[in-house]
Design a protein around this nucleic acid. Structure first.
Lengths: 262, 262
DNA sequence: ATGAATATTTTAATTATTGAAATATAATAT
DNA sequence: ATATTATATTTCAATAATTAAAATATTCAT
C-alpha cells in the first residue's frame, strides 16, 4: 500500500484511463475534449484516444451537438454487480430503505476492509436539503466514525494494534479519539451499551448513532448508522427513535442468521 | 457506432483494462491471476500489470491469503456520482423504493438514449427469490419493452423512423412487435390508455406494466415499470394495484413540475 | 521434504503510444 | 457572407511503454 511497484509491474494507461473516468464521474457535467486534456495534463490527442476507446466500449457518450463527453450508465451496471454480489446488501437494503424513509434521515451500512471502513450501502434521507456526503464505496477511518468504532468492538487486541500501526489515529476534529487508551475505553462503553455515537469526530457538524450487524457466526460483520447534522441528531432524537433503529438493525442480523442471546 | 475508428485514434490498453474490470465485476467471485489471464487470453505478466495498476488505484483488492483478486467498492462510488447527478433519480428513487417495498415487486425507471432504453434506477422486489435481471445501466430495445414503448409514444414519426432505421425491430419472442404498423397501433393504444404492457415481448416469462413520467415541459422524460414473472403479473394483479402504481408515477411527475391537465 | 502449480521478475524485441505540427471542422465576430 | 478564432482530429516520426518467453521465486499439496 502506498509503495509503488517497480515500473515494469504496472501500467500507465490504467492510471490515465481511471483519471479520465474519475474526472467525468465526479464532475458530473459533460466536458469538452480540451477541458479534459488540460485538467489532466494530457496531450489532446492522447485524451482523444482514451475517450474514443471509452466510447467504443459504451462507457462514455459524446454528444454530437455540443461535442461534450459524458458518462453513460454502463458503469452503474458494472457497479451493481459488485454491490449485488454481497449477500448482506441484498438482505439489508430493504430494511435500511424503510428506516431511512420513515426517519427521513440518511442511513448507512458499512463493513471493515483492510482496517478501514467501507460504506457498502447508503440511503439518503429525503428530508435534508444538504444531503450527506456519504456514498457507496466511500472509505473512512475506523477510529473516527461511529460505524468504525462499532466494528472495532469485535476486533482482537492484536487486530486493533495492527489497525493503529497501519492507519494511525489521525486527528480530524477536536473530538477525534487520538490515543489508544481513549479508544479502548470508548470501545468498552460501546460494547456494553450495544451502540455507539460519532460526536463530530470525523467531520464537524455531523453526528451519528451506529449499531452492530451480526450474522450466524455471532460476529459483527457490518455496522448500520443513522447520520445527520449535529443540530438535528440530538440525544432526544435518538431517544425517540431508538427502538425503531434498533429493531431495524436486529431485523437485518436476524435475516443473516444471528440468534439473539437472552 | 459499430464502425471501429482507425487504429491511431483509439487505445488498446483501454479495451484490456475494461475487459478485466468487466470480468471481475460480472463473475462476482474473487479470481486468481491465471484464471483472469487465461479467460481473457492475456499473457500472465500483462494481466498482472493491469491488476497491479488497478490495485494501486484502489479498484481491485488482492487477497494475500488466497492470492485472488476481487473488486473493491470503489467503482460503486464512481457509479454513484453518475446516477446521483441525474436529478430525476434523486427525485424518483424515494417513491420507487416505497412502491417496490409495498408491492414486493421489482420497479424500474428507464429513459431513452440513442434510441435505446437505459434503466437508470432499479429496485428489486424483496418478495421474489428469482430476482429480475434488470439492473441499473442495462440497455434494452425500445420496441420490445414496456418502458420503451411508453417512451416511444412521445416520439415524432421521424424519430420513430430513425429508431427503426438505426436499431431495427428485432425479434425476441413470439410476442415481439416486429412491424412498424403493429408498433404504431400499439403506441396509439398506450397513448390512449396512459399505460402499456410488455407481454413477454422481450423475454419469455417476464411481464410488466409501464407508465410515463413527465416533467414541467409536458414531455415524457422517463418511464416507470413494475416487472415480474408472467404468472404473478396477471391482469388481476395490475387491476388490484393499479391505483397505487399510477399514484407513484404521478407523484414523480408532479415533483418534476408536471401540471396534470384535466 | 519433495514435486507441482502458480506468481513474479527479468529481458530483448516489438509495437503501441506519444506529442508536435498540419489539417479539418465548428463557432464567433465582422 | 467572409474572416477570425477556437476547437477537434489526423498524421507521422521518435520514443517509451508494452509484450511475452524464459528464468526465478513463491506457494500449495502430498
Amino acid at each position: 500500500m502506498g509503495t509503488p511497484n517497480p515500473a515494469s509491474t504496472y501500467n500507465q494507461s490504467t492510471d490515465k484511463l481511471l483519471s479520465i473516468l474519475e474526472l467525468l464521474c465526479v464532475t458530473g457535467q459533460p466536458m469538452r475534449l480540451n477541458e479534459i486534456s488540460s485538467k489532466l495534463n494530457f496531450n489532446s490527442s492522447t485524451a482523444l484516444r482514451f475517450l474514443n476507446s471509452l466510447e467504443r466500449n459504451g462507457y462514455v457518450y459524446k454528444d454530437l451537438d455540443s461535442n461534450k463527453y459524458r458518462m453513460t450508465y454502463k458503469i452503474c451496471g458494472l457497479a451493481s454487480y459488485v454491490s449485488n454480489s454481497a449477500e448482506i446488501i441484498n438482505i439489508a437494503s430493504g430494511p435500511i430503505r424503510s428506516l431511512s424513509y420513515s426517519l427521513g434521515e440518511c442511513v448507512c451500512l458499512a463493513i471493515s476492509q483492510s482496517y478501514q471502513v467501507v460504506y457498502v450501502y447508503v440511503c439518503d434521507g429525503p428530508k435534508r436539503i444538504l444531503q450527506s456526503t456519504q456514498r457507496i464505496g466511500k472509505i473512512a477511518p475506523m477510529h473516527a466514525t461511529g460505524v468504525g468504532k462499532v466494528l472495532l468492538t469485535d476486533f482482537s487486541d492484536q487486530e486493533i494494534d495492527e489497525m493503529i500501526a497501519e492507519r494511525g489515529l489521525t486527528w480530524y476534529t477536536e473530538n477525534t479519539i487520538t490515543s489508544k487508551d481513549q479508544l479502548l475505553k470508548e470501545l468498552q462503553i460501546i460494547k456494553k451499551q450495544g451502540y455507539g455515537f460519532d460526536n463530530q469526530e470525523c467531520d464537524l457538524g455531523a453526528r451519528c448513532i451506529a449499531l452492530p450487524i451480526r450474522d450466524y457466526t455471532d460476529h459483527i460483520i457490518a455496522s448500520m448508522s443513522v447520520t445527520g447534522p449535529a443540530e438535528a441528531m440530538t440525544d432526544d432524537f435518538y431517544k425517540v427513535h431508538f427502538d425503531e433503529i434498533k429493531r431495524t438493525a436486529d431485523e437485518i442480523s436476524a435475516r443473516l442468521g444471528y440468534q439473539q442471546k437472552k
